[in-house]
Design a protein around this nucleic acid. Sequence first.
DNA 1: CATTCAGTTGACAACGTTGTCCAGGCCCTA
DNA 2: TAGGGCCTGGACAACGTTGTCAACTGAATG
Lengths: 346, 346
Amino acid sequence: MAETESRPELRYGNRPTMKDVAARAGVGLKTVSRVVNGEPGVTPDTEQRVQEAIEALGFRRNDSARVLRKGRTASIGLVLEDLADPFYGPLNRAVEEVARAHGALLINGSSAEDPAREQELVLALCARRVDGLIVIPAGDDHRYLEPEIAAGVATVFVDRPAGRIDADVVLSDSFGGAREGVAHLIAHGHRRIGFIGDQPRIHTAAERLRGYYAAMEDAGLAADDAWVSLGSTAPERVRDAVTAMLDGPEPVTAVFAGNNRVTVTVVRVLAGRERPVALVGFDDIELADLLQPGLTVVAQDAARLGRAAADRLFRRLDGANDAPARTELPTRLIARGSGEIPPWTP
Amino acid sequence: MAETESRPELRYGNRPTMKDVAARAGVGLKTVSRVVNGEPGVTPDTEQRVQEAIEALGFRRNDSARVLRKGRTASIGLVLEDLADPFYGPLNRAVEEVARAHGALLINGSSAEDPAREQELVLALCARRVDGLIVIPAGDDHRYLEPEIAAGVATVFVDRPAGRIDADVVLSDSFGGAREGVAHLIAHGHRRIGFIGDQPRIHTAAERLRGYYAAMEDAGLAADDAWVSLGSTAPERVRDAVTAMLDGPEPVTAVFAGNNRVTVTVVRVLAGRERPVALVGFDDIELADLLQPGLTVVAQDAARLGRAAADRLFRRLDGANDAPARTELPTRLIARGSGEIPPWTP
DNA sequence: CATTCAGTTGACAACGTTGTCCAGGCCCTA
DNA sequence: TAGGGCCTGGACAACGTTGTCAACTGAATG
């Protein structure tokens, strides 16, 4: 709120308080509190009078005040990279379900892959005194969170590890997944394989690249620098990168795409190409099975990722005190056709 | 939180308060408040002492207390149907961006298409005293919100209208869009056209059905009951419905799918069929252009929907007092192939 | 030197709730 | 009837912040 001028007559729109209810019901303040919270020690008769007053006034407990008094907000914050990215939808939903099961509300925000924005958001959430935080990090230095964590804000990082602090992390096995995906291409006869990934400062991107190199090395293949392209996932950039690899002096016969956004663009480019090129993408995509050919992917279970992170968070909130742990969830290779295309030979 | 037992030593993890900062800096409480809020009337010298104390203690203002005092929470609630549905991602994100521009946080929740859950969520948000609410309704009776709205909670409904109360609404033109989509099929020669939609108690589903009938009537075509199927969007149900239409005594030659989830399933079913069937779907889908044939859709602009709703909300919060309005955004027919398939003739 | 004034500063109440504690009424028993 | 315990109800402080207001400082003015 840019500037909330003080309009005292409008505070919460002048809602009735327990005091008002008490006055109307002719009882004490605390009695109303007892009724509202279902605490024992109120005769049915009194309770009914209070209920009627609540009804008549349209009273609704002010949780802001309650929070202040109780010291717990029953809310958690989830900072992800982009609320609109379909990959994070199931994760978001899974976190919500766990929160709901614990009676907590979910405050959401996107970092837009900007470390400064991530920090701003996280600190705003801390100022709200959320009970816990689940963060998909954009930055690689989270020391700014140290005082918060020390002060008791449970924090779990998901999808990417925290930077320079020791905290709970829930990850997909990016390295292993990429390695498996690239090995799959190699197993189908490919020797010149391209890799198109996100900026290497992003942990998952770096890990997947590492997996690519590992698979190549496992097979005794040298990875030409011209086959590897890292950077923004903007369609133009990816398009240029794929094109360069396919038209270079040593054209690749297969491409490994580092995430869902890259994959989508690569599919588009390959669709316009004459000669077939094999493709395996990291992350599953809706309708991937209906493409011609079906899209072979290394799938991660985003919902499970979210569930695991939220479970961990609430275990912490329930008092678990063990050392921060790193949980790594497996990926799954789903062969649908595009990854099984043999190398093109002139 | 099921039961937050009172652990007073753990309230907010014993964070320092302005009082602590004041004590350490050797100044008064209010002076700290002034520094924290950038209010004038503090000498640079004093300010620095306070800043140092803040730094040293790792103080962070408690917005819960602030909210209680100021009467505004600088947060809005967004209740949608399913956080994981890709259609709502861009809407969610758009709302977030507008909220962010106004310095407000976003509290998110899914109704899971359950009116009771919607109400529960909305009332929880009201108890938190969110400044405003954006709701994608699941239920069709929102009179429970009357006291809240009267008490000053700005409320905007989006995607579907409010039930039995007068409130701001931002919608896509479901009727017009469906009518145009069906007319498109008719223009390509179809006479027997199936309609598969969501449960008709959902407003958009009913409107799209109405658009279907209107288009048929416009063309002087009778719509056979056997061509219309409404109900859950579960894949099995949709699969059965399509199959029945295609194998009935008067088989349809084209299908209009009432939303993205239905469309996806219909595409799958048609892909397994020998004879070509035309298809137009409501809602655009990622990769729709890469299917064979490309998927013809009636697209709505979810981000614009969200932006419009949030803009309206914040205009209300800024004091706009005009009568509740209904905003209807146009849809756009995108022809990609599947809707231009001619009727199959034996 | 008395007075005014602007600029700083802090004491205090208030926001609406919940936790603590005590008072009064009742019933039971001796 | 007195004493004890239980049940119900309310007075009051506290949570951490901000708005109000008055007190103080030092300098400038008469």
